[in-house]
Write a protein that binds this DNA or RNA. Structure first.
Lengths: 348, 348
DNA sequence: TCCGGGCGTTCAAACGTTAGCAGGTTCCGC
DNA sequence: GCGGAACCTGCTAACGTTTGAACGCCCGGA
């Protein structure tokens, strides 16, 4: 059906193995021969068969991507990764992970059957019952089977593995200091304890550290809904906070642990008639491109989403190609993007 | 290295072909034998090798997805498609197409080399020079090579191929009528002529039809920037319109051809001090989940994004499995989602 | 007793590559 | 003129499946 190396070989009057070497730019083949073969291949419309090649050589030029909720966030990360992989003829086998360890494991299994050369993984959130951090069993299996993988955005605390993430600890401190500097006394940090992961953990730590350093009491405020859209959770959390006479009183600033949560918070505040930033300042963590188009535009700690994907892809490519240097932990700095929602322009 | 059918066969004392038949649930194998083999396979940690299987049988259980700009929009479509494919052990090989026919063709070629069983394609926008509609040459090649493909979201006017899209013609009419009913006299339709595709074409037609039926003059307003972020285009277009003394005067409502454009328009209106919806009503086409969180929340024609992906995936699966019924053209209805940005609540 | 026919399993070839080794030129220096 | 090293290219055996044909067995019918 489709033309194969055999066809090219016959046409060129050489052996099929010569064609293989020529196509893979092996230096053993004389230049003229190679060029002649390539010309004929092009003419016949020859196209590599990655299945056959993969079967024989054990490399599929394919990488499994097991990432979280579909959202503008992951889109940017994946786009970054894809651009790196494309340069070397790798492709991304996509699998949206439902942030559920059991299903994540099944998906990884399925992708193994497709013989991916490596994995880009956003580890699922920890089970609130069994404590923070995803079960690490199947990551160890991957390691034992010598299938490289790189965590992206999040990592698993107990496990020594490559990861590329935003420096959330620093980001939270920067955001919190920014709000303190603007004169806020009571700053709440809104997050979702039922889907605790390294990002939320580090953000919380950074926030608490700065608040304590300032001699104040941290006010971590938990989103109560489980299994809801993250925006809904944010909306819920801020409503709870506003209605809580004890903790809510005097809060003038809020840090949202994700952009999605911030969107819900923003709407809930509008609905409640609370002006942003005049009566409530808001800073969100993530900074995906849409945040600049909300009203008011959000002040964010902007994660370098594209670079997150790019760097993770590069590390993974190196691992696939045999790099066995010690584990790499890359923390990319998040940048404070001051827009209107924190009220900086009016107060400084 | 990894355990193969041969290992399972040896352990079970049967031939490797028996193992193959057992694993594929072939009725020729006796039940007890199959169960024994499956047990041993599980015990040995056997995992299918899709490369070998694909090489032999010509099916990779893999589908190429060539879709447009990474954005919340495509995310939802792909999530829908993925959920359908996952049920049948198919995976998505992802490739973000840059809405550029030349690169789209290369990506399709690359995915062919990976031996995908079919394609999900959002055809690139037409070249403004050569007229509307993407060059159809390589789609015809796909057809000749008997590789099934389904267009999703957009389609190519001249080409008779399966597609699943939102009914944009109807959507535009609904939106326009909605605004007319709210009492608006001058309604502008904002779009990007330099990336004309079936969606924009149909929206424009629907809008113009209703406006003319109402005895008025259509006011299509073109976004001028090329190659900018779509939100920027929207912002530009609305600014141009506001500054145009001739056309801008008296415009009280705007239809944006995409959510992204609407976000830019919304911000530009805020910046210009034009209250939405009081001085300018806004309706956007798309309705991805974020539109509900903008301020004011957008009234949209909500496309069934998830279903778009699901349906396209189903059709493609059937084609892959041999369905050669006549081409299917599926138009899913968009739904009018009335939120604040059109001012319906205050005017009705 | 022999034959035909399910049934369940095995045989062997193929899918399109790659890789190690063998074989054949060509060309150089002596 | 010869040995031998480069330098190319061909041969062959895999890689792990699937698939159609062949095979052996047991059973029922004549």
């Amino acid at each position: 059906m489709a033309t194969t190396m055999k066809d090219v070989a016959r046409q060129a009057g050489v052996d099929v193995s010569t064609v293989s070497l020529a196509i893979n730019n092996d230096p053993r083949i004389r230049r003229e021969t190679r060029e002649r073969i390539l010309a004929i291949a092009a003419e016949l419309g020859y196209r590599k068969n990655y299945l056959a090649r993969g079967l024989r050589s054990g490399k599929s030029f394919t990488v499994g991507a097991v990432v979280g909720y579909s959202s503008a966030f992951w889109d940017e990360v994946l786009a970054g990764a894809q651009s790196v992989f494309a340069e070397r003829e790798y492709h991304l086998l996509l699998d949206y992970a439902p942030s559920d360890a059991r299903r994540e494991e099944m998906q990884i299994e399925a992708l193994k059957a497709k013989r991916v050369d490596g994995f880009l993984i956003a580890p699922s959130d920890g089970d609130p019952a069994s404590g923070e951090g995803a079960p690490t069993a199947y990551y160890r299996v991957l390691r034992d089977e010598n299938i490289p993988f790189v965590f992206v955005d999040r990592f698993v605390p107990g496990l020594d593995a490559d990861y590329v993430a935003a420096d959330c600890f620093a980001a939270a401190r920067t955001a919190t200091r920014h709000l303190l500097r603007l004169g806020h006394k009571r700053i709440a940090f809104l997050y979702s304890p039922h889907r605790m992961n390294s990002v939320q953990r580090e953000l919380l730590d950074g926030y608490q550290m700065v608040i304590r350093e300032a001699g104040r009491t941290p006010l971590p405020w938990e989103a109560v809904r489980v299994r809801a859209d993250r925006s809904e959770e944010g909306a819920d959390a801020i409503r709870d906070l506003l209605n809580d006479p004890q903790h809510g009183a005097g809060v003038t600033a809020v840090i949202a642990s994700t952009d999605a949560a911030a969107m819900g918070i923003l709407r809930a505040l509008h609905d409640a008639g609370v002006a942003v930033p005049q009566r409530m300042a808001l800073v969100s963590m993530g900074g995906s491109s849409i945040t600049g188009y909300l009203y008011p535009p959000l002040t964010t700690m902007t994660f370098p989403l594209r670079q997150l994907g790019e760097q993770a892809a590069r590390i993974l490519l190196n691992r696939i190609e045999g790099d066995d240097a010690p584990t790499r932990h890359v923390l990319l700095p998040a940048q404070l993007t001051v827009r209107a929602s924190c009220g900086a322009s009016s107060k400084q």
